[in-house]
Amino acid sequence: MKLGIISDIHGNRVALAAVLADMPPVDGLASAGDVVGYNPWHADCVDAMRGHPEALPDDVPWPTEEVPTVMGNHDRAVASETPFAFNGMAQAGVEHATEQLSDEQIEWLAGLPDERRVCDDRVKLVHGHPDDPDHYTFPEEFGPDLLGDEDVLVMGHTHQQHHEVYDDGIVMNPGSVGQPRDRNHRAAYAVLDLDARSVEEHRVAYDTSAVIDAVGDAGLPREIGFRLTQGR
Rank of each mutant, 00 (worst) to 15 (best):
H96Q: 13
H96A: 14
A97T: 11
T98Q: 15
T98S: 14
E99R: 15
Q100A: 09
Q100Y: 08
L101H: 10
L101E: 10
S102M: 00
S102D: 01
D103S: 12
D103C: 02
D103V: 10
E104P: 09
E104H: 08
E104G: 14
Q105F: 07
Q105I: 02
Q105T: 10
I106P: 08
I106M: 15
I106C: 14
E107Y: 09
E107P: 06
E107A: 15
E107T: 15
E107G: 11
W108I: 09
W108T: 09
L109T: 13
L109K: 14
L109P: 13
A110I: 06
A110F: 06
A110Q: 06
A110W: 06
G111M: 11
G111P: 07
L112A: 04
L112S: 04
P113M: 05
P113H: 02
P113K: 00
D114G: 03
D114N: 10
D114W: 15
D114Y: 15
E115L: 01
R116S: 11
R116Q: 07
R117A: 02
R117P: 04
R117M: 07
V118Q: 06
V118W: 03
C119L: 05
C119S: 11
C119H: 07
C119I: 06
D120P: 03
D120I: 03
D120Y: 06
D121N: 14
R122C: 07
V123Q: 02
K124I: 04
K124G: 01
K124S: 04
L125Y: 04
V126M: 02
V126E: 03
V126W: 03
H127R: 04
G128C: 07
G128Q: 09
H129G: 02
P130W: 04
P130E: 09
D131L: 11
D131G: 04
D131R: 04
D131I: 01
D132E: 15
P133K: 08
P133H: 12
P133D: 00
P133E: 03
D134L: 07
H135V: 00
H135S: 02
Y136V: 10
T137L: 00
T137P: 00
T137C: 06
T137I: 01
F138N: 08
E140Q: 11
E140A: 14
E141K: 03
F142H: 09
F142D: 06
F142W: 03
F142S: 07
F142P: 05
G143W: 05
P144I: 12
P144G: 12
P144D: 12
D145T: 06
D145W: 10
D145Q: 10
D145A: 09
L146S: 02
L146R: 00
L147C: 12
G148Q: 10
G148A: 11
G148E: 08
D149A: 02
D149I: 00
D149S: 05
D149K: 09
